[in-house]
Computed example of a mutant assay.
Amino acid sequence: MRLSTVIIAHDRWHGGGRATWHRAEQLGFHAAYTYDHLSWRSFRDRPWWGAVPTLTAAAAVTERIRLGTMVTSPNFRHPVTLAKDLVGLDDVSGGRVTLGIGAGGTGYDATAMGQQAWSRSERTRRFEEFVTMLDRLLREPEGVTQRGEFYAADEVRNLPGCVQQPRLPFAVAATGPRGLALAARYGQAWVTTGDDSVTTNGTPAQSLAALRGQLGRLDEACTAAGRDPAELDRILLAGFTPEQQGPLASLAAFDDFAGAHAELGFTELVLHWPVADSIFAADPRVFEQIAVERASG
């Protein structure tokens, strides 16, 4: 199982941000991601830097670690402008970018641009259209024209295209049937945070059972799409299962957590970089010990 991290972009670049991304590479993480929001949950009244400029700066101070969003959504993005940013970011990084992408939710991002929060049905339809158009825009740099219910592209060019061919990889976050179908068709990886129904009051055993069910439904979606399920990486973003910060309590706790989820079939585990005085507070010494001793395994 590969070990990665997600970094909350809350520090000024020259006040700690640059050092964090550089340190993530030094520690041997497979990838370093950041959330793509305008602000998020309990961080709404704290500094929060944009994902694309943060990842571009991170690409310039690293050489090997993969970089990406965890995750981007249609809430305040348009596939045409996002594709242009991604082609540039993939170039600056030398082909190290993964796009984590999901349907979005009903938080601050959903209304920040003055719109009403979309219903679940509309979010799903937008997500499907967003992913399919973005796939074309990144695969066909010579020009894309497409009109849908929500998005349009008119002779859009993204020359010379992605460094990674035929396009940079998508890691699709989904648990419902239509989202899993998108992951099976367009994803190079699938992302989950677990099952919300057991996060608060459930047990670790119930969480594992729920994740086993999600993995089974992903396999079924791949089979329905005529795709080998083994082609998709399976990414678990930790911190939202009943254990919450348990994996970062100690090296032994991490090993128990990682081992149980590796047995289910997960190929990548993403840990939150510790942020003091937040829901992601953890002992930085334990976090670094885990990275040093397990990230290269």
Rank of each mutant, 00 (worst) to 15 (best):
residue 10 H to S: 14
residue 98 T to Q: 12
residue 218 L to Q: 04
residue 196 D to Q: 13
residue 60 A to T: 14
residue 69 T to K: 12
residue 294 R to E: 03
residue 67 L to R: 07
residue 255 D to I: 05
residue 130 F to M: 00
residue 6 V to R: 06
residue 218 L to R: 03
residue 173 A to F: 06
residue 31 A to E: 12
residue 246 G to S: 04
residue 279 I to Q: 14
residue 146 Q to V: 06
residue 220 E to N: 03
residue 232 L to Y: 08
residue 253 A to I: 03
residue 210 A to T: 08
residue 247 P to H: 07
residue 233 D to H: 12
residue 57 A to S: 14
residue 144 V to C: 01
residue 222 C to H: 04
residue 279 I to T: 12
residue 133 M to Y: 00
residue 180 L to E: 02
residue 70 M to C: 15
residue 105 G to E: 06
residue 112 A to V: 13
residue 196 D to S: 15
residue 46 R to T: 09
residue 116 Q to W: 10
residue 245 Q to E: 09
residue 75 N to E: 15
residue 45 D to W: 11
residue 262 A to P: 02
residue 287 F to V: 02
residue 121 S to G: 08
residue 195 D to R: 05
residue 112 A to I: 12
residue 179 G to L: 09
residue 215 L to N: 04
residue 30 H to Q: 15
residue 211 L to H: 12
residue 121 S to Y: 08
residue 273 W to K: 03
residue 222 C to N: 08
residue 274 P to M: 08
residue 72 T to W: 06
residue 173 A to V: 06
residue 120 R to N: 11
residue 30 H to N: 13
residue 64 R to C: 10
residue 42 S to T: 14
residue 16 G to E: 00
residue 200 T to W: 13
residue 105 G to R: 07
residue 205 A to S: 14
residue 272 H to R: 07
residue 212 R to T: 15
residue 86 L to I: 02
residue 195 D to W: 10
residue 191 V to S: 05
residue 140 E to H: 10
residue 99 L to F: 06
residue 277 D to F: 02
residue 283 D to E: 00
residue 115 Q to S: 12
residue 248 L to S: 02
residue 73 S to I: 11
residue 95 G to E: 01
residue 283 D to Y: 00
residue 104 G to T: 10
residue 61 V to L: 09
residue 142 E to H: 11
residue 263 E to W: 01
residue 126 R to Q: 01
residue 188 Q to I: 04
residue 255 D to A: 08
residue 216 G to A: 14
residue 228 D to C: 10
residue 159 L to Q: 12
residue 110 A to I: 09
residue 28 G to Q: 08
residue 187 G to M: 07
residue 226 G to R: 03
residue 67 L to V: 15
residue 220 E to L: 13
